[in-house]
Nucleic acid binder design. Structure first.
Length: 278
DNA sequence: CGTTGAACCTGTTTGC
DNA sequence: TGCAAACAGGTTCAAC
């Protein structure tokens, strides 16, 4: 579900609705996606949410403690495939698979819901937080062309693998990798180091444009993604490759194909995105 | 450095 | 209709 544009959209909504609120208590359901559940129960009550930041597909609720002498900590959240976090009135029945409920000081409940539990939640501070974030590559919308090319140089992995690799760039997932490659007319099986200078430029531009357009439309809602207010995104209406197997390419009308690259479905136009030489 | 496949988990869609 | 397989926005790990 959530790649960079979906996480960014959710984070923007959360900033509007929960910044400044205090967490009163924590109620946990299944906890196998939480690093240290007991630490959440101990450390979160009484904390005020002072800021929310996104790093690729992760985001942080920055917490200010009301008690003295406790270092500032952050709730790290990754939504996995099906995670969702939003504030709700307590009268609204919690859906199935709601695993974390945090009543707030304004009477609402911040709820984390995740049917597949591929997400991650952890209360972290200092070096353990840096360890997680330090493994991530640069923000794909901020990386310079020079840095992008430098990172590409010498990489023998296929470009699709690189785009999905969060230490190469943070935040691109399966949808936006395929969409960016379609816009840049690059085959997903091409090797990173073999891209021409022009292709690297096109891809760098395509990634930034695709992600910013997607954010503008509130992300992609394939089946269940919703923002912090429960509204779907609309970028799925602009998909040019992803999930369009057999449908005509928007540029050349050739049929979009699906192949497996790096174990993931990869959609591309066989005419616009030429295969690498064998 | 790479790749592949499996694992984690639930729900939905597809195919026979 | 019914059941099984395939597939899904992600990450991680073992084996090669």
């Amino acid at each position: 579900m959530p790649e960079l544009p979906e996480v960014e959209t959710l984070v923007r909504g959360l900033r509007k609705s929960v910044i400044g609120r205090r967490i009163r208590e924590v109620r946990l359901g299944k906890t196998d996606f939480i690093d240290d559940p007991a630490l959440l129960e101990r450390g979160l009550p009484g904390c005020r949410i002072v800021a929310i930041e996104r790093y690729g597909k992760y985001f942080l609720l920055r917490l200010g403690s009301v008690r003295n002498g406790r270092p500032a900590s952050s709730l790290l959240v990754h939504l996995g495939m099906t995670g969702h976090l939003a504030a709700h009135p307590p009268a609204e029945p919690a859906p199935k698979h709601t695993h974390v409920v945090m009543p707030l000081d304004d009477g609402r409940e911040l709820r984390y819901t995740d049917p597949r539990r591929f997400g991650r939640m952890a209360l972290l501070e200092g070096t353990s937080l840096e360890t997680v974030l330090g493994k991530l590559g640069e923000e794909p919308m901020e990386v310079t062309l020079a840095e992008f090319r430098r990172r590409l140089a010498g990489r023998r992995a296929r470009i699709k693998s690189l785009l999905l690799n969060q230490s190469f760039l943070r935040g691109v997932g399966n949808i936006y990798a395929d969409e960016s490659l379609w816009h840049a007319r690059i085959h997903p099986m091409r090797f990173g180091a073999n891209l021409t200078e022009q292709q690297a430029r096109d891809l760098h531009r395509a990634i930034r444009k695709t992600l910013s357009d997607a954010i503008r439309l509130g992300g992609s809602s394939i089946s269940d993604y919703r923002d912090a207010e429960g509204r779907p995104g609309f970028f799925q209406l602009r998909h040019r490759a992803y999930d369009r197997e057999g449908k005509p390419c928007y540029r050349c009308r050739a049929r979009i194909r699906r192949i497996l690259v790096a174990g993931r479905s990869s959609y591309f136009c066989p005419r616009c995105q030429r295969a690498p030489r064998p």
